[in-house]
């Protein structure tokens, strides 16, 4: 980083000034939703553990996950799962060598957003008696 002649010269504007390219947004969101779902994985394990231990433990886990903030977190996790699901399918298709030209990448990104919205809304509607 620190070269000998860096001095106090002005820098040309770089990373922070440009609009995020769609592909960069899709890619970083894939990682963020993946890391975020680590929390979901812990919650799911806690719920099963509590269910296997005692009614009191289950009330605590299930109650927290179906409280108002709990519902918010679970819906966010559901959307994260469907985003990662749709974008992951894009990656699997790319792995075959297909769909890598600019137009296809753009179209599949939009399809991924559409799929995320549809799957999130659809799965919520099907399971929403719990919310």
């Amino acid at each position: 980083m620190a070269g000998p002649n860096e001095g106090n010269r002005p820098l040309s504007p770089h990373a922070t000034i440009y609009r995020w390219p769609l592909n960069a947004v899709m890619s970083i969101l894939h990682r963020m939703t993946g890391v975020g779902m680590a929390l979901g994985a812990i919650l799911v394990v806690w719920w099963f553990l509590a269910l296997s231990i005692s009614p009191g433990q289950f009330r605590l886990a299930d109650g927290l996950m179906t409280s108002l903030p709990g519902d918010f977190v679970m819906v966010c996790l559901l959307a994260a799962l469907w985003y990662h699901f749709c974008n992951g399918i894009r990656h699997l298709i790319w792995d075959t060598g297909a769909g890598l030209d600019e137009g296809s990448v753009r179209r599949s990104a939009l399809a991924g957003w559409f799929g995320t919205a549809l799957l999130t809304a659809g799965s919520l509607a099907l399971i929403s008696n719990g919310i």
Binding site: F58, D62, T66, L78, L81, S123, L126, I127, N129, G130
Partner: peptide, 17 residues
């Protein structure tokens, strides 16, 4: 799993078991 877990969450212990 989403449909199994989602439709069981908040439905009580008996239903979950």
């Amino acid at each position: 799993f989403v449909f199994l877990f989602g439709s069981t969450l908040g439905e009580g212990r008996e239903a979950a078991i």
